[in-house]
Amino acid sequence: MNLVVAMKQIPDLQQIRFSNRRPVLADVPKSFGNIDKNALEAAVLIKESYGDGKVTVVSAGNEELEDTIKEALAAGADEAFLITDDNALDDADSSIVAQVLTEAIKQLEDVDLLLFGEGSGDNYSGQMGPRVAKLLDLPMVGYASAIEIKGDTAIVVRTLEDVEEVVEVSLPAVITVQSGINEPRIPSVTQILKAGRKPKTVQDLEDLDLGSDHKNQVVTIDILAPESNRKQIKVNNASQLLDALKNENLIGG
């Protein structure tokens, strides 16, 4: 069983500072999005229960990716296929990244199942799985909270807001997972040490054949932190708190 997991390198959101409401992203360490880690864990669990197979992580990003990818290789991925570029990919919109990932995936052999997080850790836009599925002309099932492989199909529990659908999809297919599907493993020290030695293919963005027509369709005017000026008044106990809230007429009595 050949499993492919697409993961996105994102800045560590807890470490982003803002200057004049603008995010300062320089020097913020990179990591993979949390739901992407669920997708990886789902792939590794399928491989383990299947007895054999391979989990390949594909990712597109700047050259820091060569370091970030160790996290995924330590957490159970067997191989990595990376597309890197100095900066073009940092500002690329979903349509371009989908094209890039698709070109990478086409170079992998006999893919049975492609797993994505339902949304990335930073933009959470949810376009990548559906777009890549369309580009590869594969069926897609989204929002998986359980996946079971049965012959050449996958049985997926697809959890929507008000219903759960149990669906059967023929393989190869694209599945997007949601965070509740599993608890990603924490790699051991030996696994982290071994990660650096696992096979890794790194391709330059320029070496991909994306055709002529690849420019951003989405233009970002600005990204600003919302204005917030909270009072941050310290109260010492429950009764002080209630007095303050009563003074503001927020609660009766």
């Binding site: 919109d93 979903s94 349509s95 989908a98 339902e118 959470y124 836009s125 949810g126 376009q127 990548m128 799985g129 559906p130 777009r131 599925a133 369309k134 580009l135 897609m140 989204g142 929002y143 929507l160 807001e161 997007t176 951003n216 369709q217 989405v218």
Partner: peptide, 22 residues
Amino acid sequence: DRSGKELAGSLAQAIGAGCITD
């Protein structure tokens, strides 16, 4: 909503559109 959001990505790809969700 969940299914509308994934439809957005899929449709955008099918018709060559740019897409913004949420």
